[in-house]
Amino acid sequence: MGLSDSADTRLSQEGAATVAADDPAMAADDRSGVLVAPLQTIMNWARGHSMWPMTFGTACCAIEMMTVGSPRYDTDRFGIFFRNSPRQADCMIVAGTISLKMAPRMKLLYEQMAEPKYVIAMGACAISGGPFMHGYNVVNGVDQIMPVDIYIPGCPPRPEALINGLLTLMKRNAAGELSAAQRYRLETEGHL
């Protein structure tokens, strides 16, 4: 994880073109030397059907994040199942404003997650600082600190939007696309 070392970790949306599973870059994956293609297919299927986000809610968006588990939205249908421990979570939904005091904790939690890991920036605050972006204590977008896979606009986004974001992420996984962190490492360090 060389992320924190670099001053500029912001990934531009255009610059980080998605790398598909059949991309030669996949050859750099140290696992693909061992894993044969069908196994990769099964793994992609599993990652596309099981997504355990971590319960990381800081502000208003956290209430809407709770709501997606409620009967009307019921993310359990899609295999989305909230885990408390970062070690077992696949993706971190940054639901809310990140203050300078919270930022090191968030970074720590991110580093505690097991690869492959994904980050969803939920809501205006997580994307850019939102209504508080001019403040003296608010991180202007979590992508300044960690690579973000999915941005979900809104203040707060509707639960449907969050579900859409999660499903988009799962579809990408099913297609074997790389996570933002992997793309970043591929670009900067040349390996996954």
Binding site: A46, R47, H49, S50, W52, G79, Q112, A114
Partner: peptide, 17 residues
């Protein structure tokens, strides 16, 4: 019905910390 398989296989493919 295949959800437990998806969860288990996905867990196998995660980084072992």
């Amino acid at each position: 019905a295949l959800q437990p398989f998806a969860d288990a296989i996905k867990l196998l493919g995660k980084e072992d910390i």
